[in-house]
Amino acid sequence: MFREWKDKEYIPPKTMVKLFTKGTFALSKVIIKNLNKLKKNRMEKVEYIPPKRKYKLPSYNPNMKYIKSDEKYLRPTLYCNPYAKEIIALANHLGAFEKEPYEYARDVFEFVKRNIILQILPLDGVVATLRRGYGTCLHKISLFIALCRVAGLKARYKLYALTMIQQWYETFVQPDPLMQEWYNAMGYFMLHGEGEVLIDGKWIVADVGPTPERQASAGIPITKFGEDSIGIWFQAIPGSIMRVESLPLGLGMASKILMEKIAPSSVKKINNSILKQYEKGKKILEEIGEEEYDKKVRKGYKMPKIELERKSIIFE
């Protein structure tokens, strides 16, 4: 079993272990320093109504085509079961096996990016995400990957730690002092990601995390299939980018403890803030139109991309 886990990359890579160790240590420090606040946080009543699903689930038919394979990047992995009926149904509904691979993958990207609203909650499987209509960026990536794999397109996770732009910081970190303290203690956000799909021998990035509404609210371009969010939303911490077949073991449990046991009110506050940002962006797009908005914002100023150089710095 261990060999299978290792092969499927359920065992977190060294970089991830390092990131999590640092993150856990920083979080423990925040917790110890804020025991009273945390107690209050658990007692605090924060009104929160989860968003409604934006789409109808297509119905499943046993004759629907799908690819079953044990090949790397095609097989099921943790939280990512491509053979679930709901996934097969949606894949067929989106044109799997009818459209060209690139066209299909792009439509899957658009579906996941636009329809699954970002909300913070513990990790669970792709079917739950699809039924619910919301989830974290990791939920969204898993759904994108499952929909690709079921159609015979190899897909994987691209995960990294990041520093974020101010608007993202304001939505995600600022609403909650504990989150702020944790982020500030680390200097970066521990884990974010994108999906990657292999088409014609090339891995194409799919930044399914932010909905167009959230991007409009932050005043940044609406990222397209094949367009990376690094440099637009985020700066990846150098050396932190990991390309893996699966999410690692332990992440689900850790997210459950953190979000449900340690700071449930913080999570609600952040989710409310994300929904507010979503509504704000929706209004912007309704007023100006998505195409016009994107054209306009791409004409405006861009953030330079930076690849860190060592120059003559000596590390001891």
Binding site: G187, G239, I306, I313
Partner: peptide, 24 residues
């Protein structure tokens, strides 16, 4: 948009125009 830790030093070095003296 600076990172933390030793990467912060690299970030400063990268945004700096020109060569730097040796810094440990």
């Amino acid at each position: 948009t600076y990172p933390a830790g030793k990467e912060f030093a690299m970030w400063l070095a990268t945004i700096y125009t020109g060569e730097l003296p040796n810094i440990v």
